[in-house]
Computed example of a mutant assay.
Amino acid sequence: MLRRHFAALSLAALCPLPALAQGGKVARIVVGFPAGQGIDLVSRIVAEALKDELGETFIVENKPGQGGSIALGQVARAAPDGSTILISAMAALVMAPHLYRNVTYDTLKSFEPVGRVGDLPLVLVVNPSLPVKTLPELIAYAKANPDKLSHSSSGNSTVSHVAMEELKRATGMKILHVPYQGSAQSMNDLIAGNVQVALDTVAVTRPHIEAGRLRLIAVGSLERLPFFPDTPTIAEQGFPGFEANAWLGMLLPAGAPRETVERLAAALNKIVRSPAVQQKFLAVGTLPKPSTTAEFDAFLRAEYTRWGKAIAASGIKAD
């Protein structure tokens, strides 16, 4: 993948929106995960494209912890002057508030939605030593070997955790959850065989799948992916309607000026629709999902309700 190329965007200078550029201020795009993960790579592509579109400057700032929730808490407390921007994965916005008692933000009140950015579809992978090549074979193996398998995630309350819990519940598999601080260590232990299964993004799994270090057995999107057109979805393998997909959205702190929100939203929507950015998104395993502010606001509220119900039904608790 183009990880090395896009990692170079981390300190690309961009200047904030014109109303905020006075006094040489620099805007931050805050990301709640370590460098090198899917959301980080996408955020750097967006930062570079916004620089070209607006002729201004930002810095991508990684604030990992608690599945992205720590970054959201910091942005929620930031001055609503447009100098702090958030690109968040879905988990911290619509899962963590239902999992943790101590999140320091209110998803529906602490932020101004700007727009949807893209989707990071999840894929189900196993260590090649595991004698399974399909989801039904994994289910059969797990049931024949109860409590002998473990699965990694990029952290408690992340989509790779919660979606896998949903899959286990749907299939009846009993597999031990092992959380990590980000996907890099998770993938290392999966490749080493310390854990055997993972449901994680294309961005972090694809290099290892293509190198033969991991075996791909299913994709979590509702339709087959352009990256792996021959691999059936989880839905196709006996679980209609099952979806494991990590969407990304851009937000500002609540109270940001409406003109700032609208100008940033228009620029974001334009760049995500551009062929050049779409090509870069696909290169890092991301499906472009442009939207208006109103569309993203409605989507965010619907997802918050949906996952609240799903987590209540599953009984998952992170603390």
Rank of each mutant, 00 (worst) to 15 (best):
P34L: 09
L99M: 15
V60P: 04
V117A: 09
A78L: 05
F58H: 12
R28C: 01
G220R: 02
N127Q: 05
P146F: 10
V46S: 01
K309S: 14
S83P: 01
A8I: 01
R206N: 09
G241S: 09
S88I: 06
I45T: 04
Q74W: 11
A246W: 00
T171L: 03
L225M: 07
G36F: 10
L124T: 08
H208Q: 12
A192V: 01
I271K: 02
A47R: 11
E112P: 02
H161T: 03
N156S: 12
S314P: 03
Y105V: 05
A198T: 06
T205S: 15
V114E: 10
V195P: 00
L130M: 12
L282P: 00
K63D: 11
T158Y: 06
A283Q: 15
K168W: 07
I209K: 01
P179K: 01
M1L: 12
V195S: 14
A89T: 14
T233W: 12
V202K: 01
A91N: 14
T107V: 10
L287W: 10
K109E: 15
V75A: 07
A254M: 02
G32M: 09
V261D: 04
E112V: 10
V75G: 04
E259M: 02
V178T: 11
V159S: 15
K174H: 13
K168P: 02
S10A: 14
A12W: 08
V126C: 10
N194T: 08
V125I: 10
S43T: 15
Q278I: 02
G308E: 05
G308F: 05
K280C: 02
V117S: 10
S129N: 11
L225D: 05
V195R: 00
L138P: 01
A203Q: 04
E61P: 00
A184T: 13
L199M: 15
R301Q: 13
M90T: 04
H177W: 05
F33E: 13
A312H: 11
A21Q: 14
V42G: 03
I175A: 01
G315T: 05
T231K: 13
P226F: 11
V126S: 07
A218D: 05
Q22Y: 07
A163E: 15
P97F: 07
G249N: 09
N194M: 05
S314D: 14
H5F: 12
K289M: 13
P275R: 10
M95D: 07
A13N: 00
K280Y: 03
P136N: 12
A256P: 00
A21Y: 00
Y304N: 06
S274P: 02
V125A: 06
G255F: 10
R44W: 03
T305K: 14
L287M: 13
R301P: 02
V94D: 03
S69Y: 09
A79P: 03
N194H: 13
G118A: 15
N156H: 09
T260L: 13
A254T: 02
I85N: 05
S152T: 11
V261G: 09
K133T: 14
A276P: 01
G212T: 07
V103A: 09
L214I: 06
G36L: 10
A21N: 09
L120C: 01
H208L: 12
Q22D: 09
M164Q: 11
L120A: 14
Q22L: 12
A96S: 15
S221H: 13
P257Q: 08
A8M: 11
P207D: 04
D52R: 14
P288L: 11
L50M: 04
I70H: 06
